[in-house]
């Protein structure tokens, strides 16, 4: 049975809108032609009017979509090792809300709104993976030296990088230093990520050796905060 629209959309109750929206989404899942005006009106109330109830309805309506997108994400398995599925779903909605609030984003179609929600999910996943990758780098074995520099002592990264560049003579050394220290790439990965930039892994190993020798010779310039052996 179809529901006739007796009132303009903006006068319909949230419950009615939600019912219509569910009905249209069911049509969508059956691959029938559907009408997304109801969904868009809920979006409008949630985003533009900042109606909290509408926001809750939205989350309820589209959580399954977000879960489905997460299921199809190429990093799903890795992501779920770090956080639960619901965390990503919640984070996606939180980011969506943040974006529409901070940037005054609004959407002309439900498809564009869902696209943005999809983007938020992607950011939630990739930011988590990046954060854990960074944590792994910082937790590398033996790094927790008792004399490890405190936050206030930490060399400013940019200044550190400029110093390293200044003690490396050639562009290729600087490039390999960037790919090694900034990107933490092994020679084989460098060849894969940067095809054609280097002749082969041996060239990268050779450049890395030059880099480390120069860095150790100029340790005083980098003002090591590590043990005395480094700065000697």
């Amino acid at each position: 049975m179809s529901i006739e629209i007796e009132k303009p959309l903006e006068e319909m109750t949230l419950e009615t809108l939600a019912e219509c929206c569910v009905r249209e989404l069911s049509k969508y899942r059956r691959k029938e032609s559907c009408d997304d005006r109801y969904c868009l009106e809920i979006f409008r109330r949630a985003v533009k009017l900042r109606n909290n109830e509408a926001w809750i309805v939205l989350q309820r309506l589209f959580s399954d979509n977000v879960r489905m997108w997460l299921g199809g994400h190429s990093h799903r398995e890795l992501a779920l090792r770090y956080e639960a599925e619901q965390t990503y779903v919640d984070d996606a909605f939180r980011r969506f809300w943040q974006a529409v609030s901070d940037q005054a984003l609004s959407f002309s179609t439900i498809a564009s709104a869902l696209s943005y929600l999809r983007l938020c999910l992607h950011c939630a996943i990739m930011d988590t993976l990046r954060a854990f990758a960074r944590a792994n780098v910082e937790r590398m074995p033996d790094y927790g030296h008792p004399d490890e520099p405190q936050v206030e002592d930490r060399y400013h990264e940019n200044e550190l990088w400029e110093t390293i560049k200044s003690i490396l003579p050639g562009e290729r050394e600087q490039r390999v230093a960037y790919l090694h220290f900034h990107c933490n790439l092994k020679p084989r990965e460098i060849i894969r990520y940067c095809p054609g930039e280097f002749q082969g892994e041996e060239e990268i190993y050779r450049l890395k050796r030059n880099i480390m020798e120069r860095i150790l010779r100029n340790a005083d310039k980098i003002r090591w905060k590590l043990d005395g052996g480094m700065s000697a």
């Binding site: 590398m140 790094y143 030296h145 220290f181 990107c183 590590l226 480094m230």
Partner: peptide
Amino acid sequence: DANKFLIGQLYRYQCPDLT
């Protein structure tokens, strides 16, 4: 030590966030 210190300091420090 040198390697870990430098990677720890410089890893993706120039990268823009995912958003």
